[in-house]
Design a protein around this nucleic acid. Structure first.
Length: 296
DNA sequence: AAGAGCATGGAAGAACATAT
DNA sequence: ATATGTTCTTCCATGCTCTT
């Protein structure tokens, strides 16, 4: 199987970043710490006025108070949770972008999007002992041999292999309503032809309404966030308060609404670490049993 | 050389929320 | 009840990378 040059470039650079992070920074790569490696490689900071905040929103919105506050809140979270906490935050993120030959102010979208796909592929390979197909051709996949090549986009990641296609992973660094329709159309395209297919998204979106649109769509089985605890921290209406009066939690006050959003995020969005255990649960065993045989 | 695909920037109006 | 402010949706567009 011929590998294309792109695969070498991204995979090689990302593996180097992951290895160096383990060796030099002493961070052990595990299902629980995978998010740190993703942020280390892919997240970047945006300078807004005097502040440096993570780019969790288009810059024009990030300048507004509400998103600036959320950005600052995430920056604080990362400062104390993204290792090594002694380093300045700006040294702890954006390594793939730095390693690429991109100019300083160059746009990052391709690097982020493709880097995200390959990062997930590396992580899945590491934890689940199975190499996902990255951007496979539609007609390589079981059940889609006769499908026209350009009918829908190529999937981001497919598991487990061409002959045994059971999980489709879409990785999107951010979501937007105007792209959502296309993505749901694709999901339903796959679902209509293969109702048994497990269709999931991995995202780093920080807007609850965008997340809910995706997570509540019937075409989508699961939505995983790169780091759910970080997302929840940004929307935690009661930070550092061990006990809360129940009066705050009911009614339609401002604080009660925020609590609702927080609860809904908790209910509808999953953490990336669950992706790995979910894949392992579906994965065929060494005896070549099907999923149904193995589980039931 | 042309095309697909990625995540983004930005504008403008709709929809919703809040203050007076 | 009205005006004002904020967020969401929609539309159009960019610059880059990789494929055809």
């Amino acid at each position: 199987m011929a590998k294309n040059p792109m695969q070498f470039k991204y995979e090689g650079v990302l593996r180097t970043i992951f290895d160096e992070t383990q060796k030099e920074k002493g961070i052990k790569l595990s299902e629980k710490t995978a998010w740190q490696f993703l942020y280390r490689a892919l997240l970047w900071l945006e300078k807004i006025g005097n502040e440096e905040v993570p780019h969790i929103r288009e810059v024009n919105d990030l300048k507004k108070r509400i998103w600036l506050d959320r950005g600052k809140r995430l920056a604080a979270f990362l400062n104390s949770n993204l290792e090594p906490t002694a380093d300045p935050l700006s040294n702890r993120v954006g390594l793939l972008y730095e390693a690429s030959n991109a100019r300083k102010e160059q746009q990052k979208q391709n690097i982020v999007g493709t880097g995200f796909e390959y990062s997930l592929s590396i992580l899945i390979k590491q934890f689940c002992s199975v190499a996902p197909l990255v951007k496979p051709k539609l007609n390589q996949l079981q059940g889609f041999e006769l499908a026209p090549l350009r009918f829908v986009q190529q999937p981001d990641l497919a598991l487990f292999d061409s002959q045994d296609f059971r999980i489709l992973v879409s990785s999107k660094w951010s979501l937007r309503k105007d792209r959502l329709g296309e993505q749901l159309y694709e999901a339903s395209f796959y679902r209509k032809r293969r109702p048994d297919l497990y269709i999931v998204f991995v995202v780093n979106e920080f807007d609850p309404s965008r997340l809910f649109h995706l997570a509540r769509a019937p075409e989508v089985d699961r939505v995983y966030h790169v780091h759910l605890p970080a997302l929840l921290d940004v929307y935690d209406p009661f930070p550092n308060q061990p006990t809360i009066s129940r009066d705050y939690l009911i009614g339609d006050s401002e604080i009660a609404k925020r609590y609702q959003i927080y609860q809904n995020l908790k209910r509808d969005i999953r953490d990336l670490s669950e992706l790995f255990s979910d894949i392992k649960r579906v994965k065929p065993g060494p005896s070549n049993q099907t999923c149904a045989d193995a589980e039931i």
